[in-house]
Amino acid sequence: SDRFKFIARSCKEILDKYDEREDGIYYLTTNNGMKYQTFCDMNTAGGGWTLVASVHENNMNGKCSVGDRWSSQQGNNPNLPDGDGNWSNRNTFGLVESATSDDYKNPGYYDIVAQDMSVWHVPNNFPMEHWNLAAILRYHTENNFLRLYGGNLFNLFKQFPVRYNIGSCSNRGPAVPIVYDHGDTESTKNLYGPGPRNEFDPGFITFRAINHERAAMAICSGVKPRGCHCEHYCIGGGGYFHPEQCGDFPSFDWDRLGKEQGWSASKEMTESAVLLFYR
């Protein structure tokens, strides 16, 4: 079908107005009339999911260098506690076609008023037509939790700033139950070593988790922290971490002792982009 003829504010609106059920790229418009392209998942759990962002680690050894847009491209600096601040600003970057090979953020991230989220972990560099089948983990929420936090992550992170030294590890944001579309709690646990497995409960998505060193991570994908070592299993962050941890996937490239203790994430997890959808 000619997907580009449908103009709407979200993929859910296209689904509801036109009963369009083909996955792929569509045009959307913002509240102020800006037009942009993004990917629509029109089939998972009833469809209508709008891709608004992806988090991709371009260099596991970069430590908050160029390309770490969801943490800091300005270095690992306690004097820049917000880092690049992209979790709670209106910056946009990247291209939808490249969402598994680079960071991506479109205007829908701050413009769409949604109720729920879907998350896909897709191996790096996979072409868009294979994202669904290639994903190592896919899940969604279904309790309308975003209504409580302004309808999107932009507003949620205004309430729970992703900032260094904002609080202790007990000051994390909401932990929301998830429904698995591919994977389960056991496969989620197996994406991490024995250290992290003792630190979290699978079956949730958690926002703004803080570790022992007072560094703030944005999203703990598929898990709810019970301990204070969330840098081993959460992504994104503010402007300062332990020197060995900084980046969009902050400590998946751990030191030798840490790896021997089983604190690393799996190769599957570290080499997958995290795609974020609204509905």
Rank of each mutant, 00 (worst) to 15 (best):
P81C: 13
A8Y: 11
Y240N: 03
L146G: 02
Y27D: 11
P81W: 04
V223I: 12
V113F: 05
F249R: 05
N190G: 05
N211M: 09
A216I: 04
V179M: 12
E231I: 02
S72I: 07
M117N: 04
H121C: 13
D103R: 03
P78A: 12
G151R: 02
C11A: 12
G222K: 00
E22S: 15
F154C: 02
G47M: 03
I166E: 07
P81F: 07
W120L: 10
G150K: 04
G33P: 06
P78Q: 10
V55W: 00
T185L: 05
Y192D: 05
S72F: 04
G262H: 06
G67L: 07
Q159E: 14
H182S: 11
G46L: 13
S187M: 12
G247Y: 01
R172H: 14
E213G: 14
Y180V: 12
P243D: 05
D111Q: 00
S71N: 10
F157L: 05
M128E: 12
T50A: 01
P81N: 09
R69E: 09
S10A: 11
N124I: 09
E57D: 14
W70I: 00
W263D: 02
F241N: 03
N91F: 05
L156G: 03
Y139H: 08
V176S: 04
I166Y: 07
K5L: 12
F160A: 01
P250A: 07
R3M: 12
N152T: 12
K259S: 15
H121F: 13
H182Y: 15
Y109F: 10
D23W: 06
V119C: 04
T206E: 11
P107H: 03
P107Q: 06
L276E: 00
S72R: 06
F145G: 02
D201E: 15
D181T: 13
F145N: 03
G247N: 07
R208V: 00
V223P: 09
F39N: 04
A135P: 00
N190H: 14
H121L: 14
D181S: 15
R279C: 01
A265G: 11
G62V: 08
G33H: 11
G33T: 03
A8P: 08
I178H: 01
D68K: 06
L95D: 14
N79W: 14
S88T: 09
F39H: 05
R9H: 14
G94I: 07
G108H: 01
L146I: 07
W254I: 03
W87S: 00
A134Q: 10
D2S: 15
G258A: 13
A99G: 08
L95F: 14
F157R: 01
I219E: 02
A114W: 02
V96I: 10
M128A: 11
F154Y: 06
C228E: 08
D116W: 00
Q74H: 14
N31K: 15
N79F: 15
F252A: 03
D116E: 10
D2N: 15
Y192P: 09
W131Y: 12
L137M: 13
H212V: 15
A273H: 03
R3P: 13
